[in-house]
Design a protein around this nucleic acid. Structure first.
Lengths: 132, 132
DNA sequence: CTGTATCCTTAGGGATACTG
DNA sequence: CAGTATCCCTAAGGATACAG
């Protein structure tokens, strides 16, 4: 997606403003997925060509890394870059929004509670774990 | 966009996970725009048919209101619902992300500073102003 | 298993004309 | 001014086959 303007919100959307990219980041962030087949088996079942193209774009945009698994050279492992980890607060706010406005969904209530009570601590904990 | 899963992040994307909806909300929220032509003259210049369809979807989804201007019955005025106002923290986190990872953009620095120093106060101030 | 490539259909979107 | 409608093209996306 080309740069549309100098607006910081528009800029984020130019990177992840589609239906799938944030779900890939979610899976890497919250569900410990790091292989292609892990990601393909997400609840939303994205098509393999879409997954492939999004991984390529996210890597080009500097949000994820693609590495060879050191324990098995045939495998490839996807992980978040620091810029990718910094998407975390955006996802947390989305979870909070849904917990308020779409309470019928499967919301991790203890996560929401901690996001309210100790937001910066939560983000620091998750971030340090993800960057470890 | 149909519901894809029970995930709260996916749910938000089902409402605003396209290239334009959050920009409309941004314009209503930060730039005091409330008419069709106001919105059409945003920096990103969205096409009139797209603007029309997004306004319709956002209204159906309960994020914006469309009302007759009480001072001029010919005019229509768009405004955010409480659910729309609650998108604010998501936008703030997007601005923070860009301020960190795309510092070349036009970022409102005093907003970012306050988002760091007094995040909940900032959100309360903006929210109460928007709902006033 | 980890993807790429292809085929095909649908949705997104730009330009512009048109209506109340 | 405030939209709707149409035309047309491109991008997104699903299904599936295929390659390393």
């Amino acid at each position: 997606m080309p740069t549309r303007s100098q607006c910081p919100i528009s800029n984020v959307l130019d990177h992840v403003g589609d239906k799938w990219s944030l779900l890939i980041i979610r899976d890497l962030m919250f569900f410990g997925k790091h292989t292609y087949s892990d990601l393909q088996n997400s609840e939303e079942k994205m098509a393999t060509n879409i997954l492939s193209s999004r991984l390529e774009k996210l890597e080009n945009d500097g949000l994820i890394n693609k590495q060879i698994d050191p324990t098995d050279k045939r495998k490839k492992v996807y992980s978040l870059t620091p810029a990718g980890v910094d998407i975390l607060p955006i996802l947390i706010e989305m979870i909070i929004w849904s917990s308020k406005h779409a309470p019928d969904l499967n919301i991790p209530t203890e996560l929401v509670a901690r996001a309210h009570n100790d937001r910066s601590g939560l983000i620091q904990d998750l971030t340090s774990r993800l960057l470890a």
